[in-house]
Design a protein around this nucleic acid. Structure first.
Lengths: 364, 364
DNA sequence: CTGTTAGCGCGTTCAG
DNA sequence: CTGAACGCGCTAACAG
């Protein structure tokens, strides 16, 4: 009582209601009374209208509007053990890649009446464990998590939760449950192959210092080194520089400067994200280096904007929106809301240069 | 039963538990039994440890680990009518401005044990109404909403919800409850004053077609037109072009092209967001127009990255993170977690060029 | 400091 | 097609 200074938070100030209660909110039974039916009938009229006669349905709807009833899904969730919430765990939402994922999942689930419970894990496994626990305490109906590297505690909790779990944005031989992702190592390889195919020989990397960027860098380097061995006299070389996370334009610019300081004749720079690529491009512009004539820039993420801006910019494209949509579709399928078409178990994540399919593998 | 094809979703397959139940999850009473105490004691040991003797507390903690108990906050929320959730409603999360807000609020609330229920409203009042209703059905403890223009239905529901409501990112003479914002009209005016002060005379605007950008454009135009009247022979002119939402780099580039087509001698362009500004800069670069010598670019949002990239780029800066932190701080204060310092009712939203304070005005 | 009782508001189940 | 009883898992309020 009186936790808040102003009267609107005093529960006693419930106004002219007949039966003032703790929350002061309109309940199902209030609507039922107004409509002259049982509470259960109101519940049905709202959730399974087809089971209720049209006449009662109308009376209920009128009563709902009259009373200003807003269903209490907390109670509903407890009674039915279905929360209509999906937890979405991403490292950060302040990065366009993940922001797009969250946007897309949210939009898609909203259509089916699901809501998103957001969990931001940072890039640390430890923090993820804490977020997983809090999030699971809300009993979401499903959980989407970016990344496949989890602490043992997280794996256990996620297993015990007995809900569909979808790992996205990475590859794994041992998925927790379902997986919609791709190999970042393969992305790096594909980028290297592409650039080698273009005839470039002196490469720089401007990579964010996060686990998945490291994988892309490794894939890239592996291919470059292999080519060095295959053609030892071709003058192929590569240098890698790291940008602090979160990746920013400034970070991209600084890292580009570092790359060019160490390798002034660098021909092409591979960046771990679109944001960094923009920074690299900025640095190039400020040095009056034409793109891509003097310096080719390779991004990662949905760089359609950059591609349109600098037409010659090559880009590995992963459509975050599309990943989101697929994710949601699969979740819904598991919920029984979609068609159980087995063909949907094969997912093309939408690479432009790299195209790789992953299989949904429900835990046995 | 059997809604899911694989057995892990069959509730009967509860395994070797002594007392298989609907959800199959460990309950408070299970922990209580394991610890040899009453359920209530476990609840207290977890939520108000200071009220429990150290010895029982330890026994409980051991039992929690043993059983792998994850609290059910759905039940907790129903019983206590405190959900420990804060709803955050923004038009989109696929825009750096709002993504930063969400990131910041989430981080800050997490420290106090609150979680974010995300609601994406699009830019439409109508959609907002629907999102408000669904979100309120989860009974959040508070609600943060971007913008001050709401439908009548929304205003009513928000009022009836009897929770703290914080409007952010805009100004209003008639706030629903609390308000942490600023006037977009004033931002436009300040930008115009700044550019006029720099001696520019021929202005373009590249604005996103959303309500708040319109306000900034109006403020800008109002000042420019006033100056025109004051100095009719100074050759001051202005042209405004709109970019489709969501704002993209490509949109910025296209809009810049439109501006320059209609006003080839344009000296300065005011953009409604950092993203559009980046696109305008790109277009300028591709035309070999030096920035800011040939064309000055003015952004809006946290363009610290761009400022570092193009040092001469002027920018009205609103620190999204800071807004978030303030917002959260105020929420927590209302929750009783912060000090009820009345000085906190005055908030500086952190403009660099425009500095304006707003007052928190709890509804009477 | 600990335990007991009685709901929170709704959905499930089974009768009518 | 509609209704009544019961319980989801937890916490408020009180009693010891």
């Amino acid at each position: 009582m009186g936790r808040f200074p102003d009267s609107r938070f005093d529960k006693a100030a419930d106004g002219g209601r007949d039966n003032p209660r703790a929350t002061g909110a309109v309940r199902l039974s209030d609507v039922a009374a107004a409509a002259g039916v049982a509470a259960m009938t109101v519940s049905r009229a709202l959730n399974q209208p087809e089971l209720v006669s049209e006449r009662t349905r109308e009376r209920v709807q009128r009563a709902v509007i009259e009373t200003g009833y807003v269903p209490n899904r907390v109670a509903g969730a407890l009674a039915s053990s279905r929360s209509k919430m999906v937890a979405v765990l991403v490292p950060t939402v302040a990065h366009s890649l993940f922001a797009d994922v969250v946007q897309s999942i949210t939009d898609t689930l909203a259509v089916e009446g699901y809501q998103v419970l957001l969990g931001l894990t940072g890039y640390q496994t430890e923090e993820e464990a804490a977020v997983v626990e809090t999030v699971l305490s809300r009993r979401p109906d499903a959980l989407v998590v970016a990344g496949t590297r989890h602490s043992e505690a997280t794996r256990q909790r996620l297993g015990a939760a007995r809900i569909p779990v979808v790992e996205i944005w990475d590859m794994s031989d041992d998925p927790l449950d379902m997986l919609i992702g791709f190999s970042h190592h393969a992305v790096g390889e594909a980028v290297a192959d592409h650039l080698l195919g273009c005839g470039y020989q002196r490469f720089g990397q401007a990579m964010a210092d996060d686990p998945r960027s490291h994988q892309r860098a490794e894939g890239f380097n592996a291919r470059i080194l292999a080519e060095q061995k295959a053609r030892p006299d071709a003058g192929i070389k590569v240098t890698t520089h790291w940008a602090e996370i979160p990746a920013t334009l400034v970070g991209g610019r600084t890292t580009a400067a570092n790359v060019l300081a160490g390798m002034p004749d660098c021909e092409a720079i591979f960046c771990s994200s679109d944001t960094l690529a923009m920074g690299v491009i900025a640095e190039a512009q400020s040095r009056a280096m034409a793109i891509p004539e003097a310096l080719a820039v390779m991004g990662f993420g949905d760089m359609s904007f950059a591609a349109a801006t600098w037409p010659a910019l090559s880009t590995v494209r992963i459509d975050g929106a599309e990943i989101g949509r697929l994710t949601a579709a699969h979740l819904l399928q598991r919920f029984g809301a979609g068609s159980p078409d087995p063909a949907h178990d094969i997912v093309d994540v939408g690479f432009e240069i790299v195209a790789r399919q992953t299989t949904l593998s429900p835990r046995s």
